[in-house]
């Protein structure tokens, strides 16, 4: 399906948030996920299904002041 990840249109095969994080190659312990402006807690990644047109944000901590 087509979704938006960090502002980019992407075709993905994953059907859940957990599947998406794995498909993109990230360690779930080091990132946080927002789906359509709502936080998806880690405990719900496996059961949260993706829908066509979802807007996903995948963030991490970086250096900052």
């Amino acid at each position: 399906m087509r979704i938006q990840v960090n502002g980019e249109d992407r075709q993905v095969t994953a059907t859940t948030v957990q599947g998406l994080v794995e498909e993109l190659g990230f360690d779930i312990r080091k990132v946080a996920v927002e789906r359509n402006l709502a936080i998806v807690p880690k405990s719900l990644h496996a059961e949260t299904t993706l829908a066509e047109g979802d807007r996903i944000e995948l963030v991490q901590f970086v250096g900052g002041g």
Binding site: G7, E8, L24, E57, L58, V59, F61, V62, G63
Partner: peptide, 8 residues
């Protein structure tokens, strides 16, 4: 620390 998008 700052919060930013990961590098896809």
């Amino acid at each position: 620390v700052a919060v930013r998008r990961v590098n896809l």
